[in-house]
């Protein structure tokens, strides 16, 4: 019979809290850069100028079809050879997850924009609006509302994916767990507690997103996936 002993875990719990904070930090930064970048990719892909549209499509598909861990290793180990930058685990993590999630956000944006009735573009055009004005004032406000559920789902996926940064020694919750497990020789307790922490965090976000989705459904808004 296994004897559970959580004393070691909880005496160093602040280590895990720092990790949790770093996990949230990476997620937030990746969202901060990834969402606008995703919009740029989406608009480029929708562009009538074919070279731009084709390039955007290629970048999007490339980052959607290659594993995030490979991307992370590439940015961490390979990029500094190609261009002269001092790469830290933190920068590699933010760059990787910003671009990786932007590829997914781009497809969400594209789905949202394309779901808006063509008549909305025409209505805007008819009162003299330019493409830019139509997009910003008329199309995006409606599209974004429809995108919210898909957007939240993707953000949760992103949060889960950030565990990969532990492999390049960025001190996120997963990395801190490895560290603590080695220090305390209590991997069972450490990993169980950390799994629970992730579960609670992600479960809360999931429930929130379900709640928002229900709200939107009540207000009669259709959503895109």
């Amino acid at each position: 019979m296994v004897e559970w002993n959580f004393i070691a875990v909880f005496s160093d719990f602040d280590l895990l809290l720092i990790g949790l904070l770093n996990t949230l930090k990476i997620t937030a930064l990746a969202l901060l850069f990834g969402v606008p970048l995703g919009l740029v990719f989406a608009l480029s892909r929708l562009s009538k100028f074919l070279p731009l549209s084709f390039t955007a499509a290629f970048i999007i598909e490339f980052f959607r079809t290659t594993p995030p861990l490979v991307q992370l290793f590439w940015f961490f180990f390979a990029l500094p050879i190609l261009i002269d930058v001092r790469m830290t685990p933190f920068i590699a993590a933010v760059v990787t997850f910003s671009i990786q999630s932007s590829a997914f956000f781009a497809e969400i944006f594209r789905g949202g924009i394309q779901s808006i009735d063509k008549g909305q573009w025409e209505g805007a055009k008819a009162i003299g609006m330019s493409y830019r004005q139509s997009l910003i004032r008329i199309i995006l406000p409606q599209a974004v509302k429809r995108m919210i559920p898909a957007f939240m789902e993707r953000s949760i996926e992103l949060l889960k994916t950030t565990t990969l940064v532990s492999t390049v020694a960025y001190a996120d919750l997963m990395f801190q767990a490895n560290d603590l497990a080695q220090k305390t020789f209590r991997p069972l307790e450490v990993y169980t507690v950390v799994a629970l922490m992730y579960f609670v965090l992600i479960f809360v976000f999931s429930q929130m997103s379900i709640l928002v989705e229900k709200r939107l459904a009540q207000s009669g808004e259709s959503t895109v996936r």
Partner: peptide, 18 residues
């Protein structure tokens, strides 16, 4: 664009901004 500001248009399906 500026031409269209001088020509009003009304559509079959209204195209109001919801």
């Amino acid at each position: 664009c500026s031409l269209r500001t001088r020509i009003g248009m009304v559509f079959q399906h209204f195209n109001l901004f919801p």
